[in-house]
Design a protein around this nucleic acid. Structure first.
Lengths: 213, 213
DNA sequence: TAGATTGTTAATCGATTAACAATC
DNA sequence: TAGATTGTTAATCGATTAACAATC
């Protein structure tokens, strides 16, 4: 899948930023492959696809690679996103400190009952009815859904109406982008993840294999 | 990847349970494919791999399919898991109601400071120092990590020492199963997900494509 | 130079799909 | 019977890797 390629690029970038902060200057396809769990050949291929030059002997210059990755992945921070559903999970996300490091900012939360949660954090919380306008006026492109599964579909519709182009969905329903709506959906179904882990764990004993990630 | 196959099986199961509760009795590979976003041929192939018989004319019997899927995926509920890190995200998970529906139960939380969070929920919270013993004594196989990234690696080590075989990691570091440790790791990196969405959204305009999930 | 690493091609591998005979 | 759907084979497709010439 093409998305895997993008995910790898992001992983390279994160790793390289750490390496840089440790004072390193060069890396080999070898090192990168080990760290993110792919073959060195694939690293080189990926870099070659985004026209990243290395030195036949000295590997890749970290600075250069980061610059080019930023170039390709888009660097413009902060990434402004909205959040629908300010229950337990929603509030945890609003207060999630790591977002700042990635240049991600939740600029507003929305809930059917905005009063109940307004005090929860410094992120303003509005009524869902205001979401379409807010998203439109602020040209927000990414929305996070953390509402109960029964409401997830409707909330996604609202987001799309406001012009949201990418949705990260935590509700335990599989949301899909209707064909031709030019919107990307990423579902995070925690229950499903755990079930799959369980299956893999229970069936690993036979084979003895240890799949990664 | 083999994991995709398992994920599909779980999705079939969830969908079929919903259909069953709506009173349906039969499905066609067609319907299932539409719903979870794969081709009918793949549905039939998946079912054939787990020796699930259909009727040439009448599709598949929902009851039968669910039974067989339970058979393959393992039905024994409740699935007992532990949670390390009882901060914002950890607490949200402890109170996550959907787990019950999937037969998942967080039986204990662990934190460096158990006092601070003990009152947070009905799930007991202990000191991390007690995690190894607890996991061992209760034969827990799955652990959720919701600690800061700097602690994630150590926490995973503790889990493995206790006998945990599957890890769901929310810390923004890529945890990996060391080769030969027969442990499965699933990383959920929310920041990374959002970054990838952003990339996809920004680059979709050109192509006009709308990739799903 | 000898040794090591990139960049790229061709081969491999696995997963998905097209297609169709079997059959209800 | 005619129509529809399964079950399975062979073809396709795409992603990954092996391998090696180029070269620092």
């Amino acid at each position: 899948m093409h998305r895997d390629f993008i995910v790898r690029l992001s992983k390279y970038k994160r790793l390289l930023q750490k390496l840089k902060s440790l004072g390193l200057v060069k890396v080999f396809s070898n090192n990168l492959g080990d760290a993110i769990g792919v073959s060195p050949a694939l690293v080189r291929k990926d870099f070659s696809l985004i026209s990243l030059p290395g030195n036949k002997r000295g590997g890749y210059n970290i600075e250069t690679v980061i610059a080019q990755l930023n170039n390709v992945l888009g660097e413009e921070s902060p990434h402004r996103v909205v959040l629908a559903g300010c229950g337990k999970i929603g509030r945890a996300l609003m207060e999630y400190k790591e977002f700042a490091k990635d240049g991600i900012e939740i600029v507003a939360g929305f809930d059917i009952d905005p009063e109940a949660v307004r005090s929860a954090s410094r992120v303003p919380v509005h009524a869902v009815s205001q979401m379409i306008d807010f998203v439109r006026e602020n040209r927000i492109k990414i929305g996070i859904i953390a509402v109960p599964d029964s409401a997830a579909g409707q909330v996604m519709d609202l987001m799309l109406q406001g012009g949201i182009r990418g949705v990260l969905n935590f509700a335990p329903v599989e949301l899909k982008s209707t064909p031709g709506c030019s919107c990307v959906v990423q579902n995070v179904n925690i229950g499903l993840e755990i079930e799959n882990l369980l299956y893999l764990v229970n069936h690993m004993e036979h084979t003895g294999e240890s799949p990664d990630e």
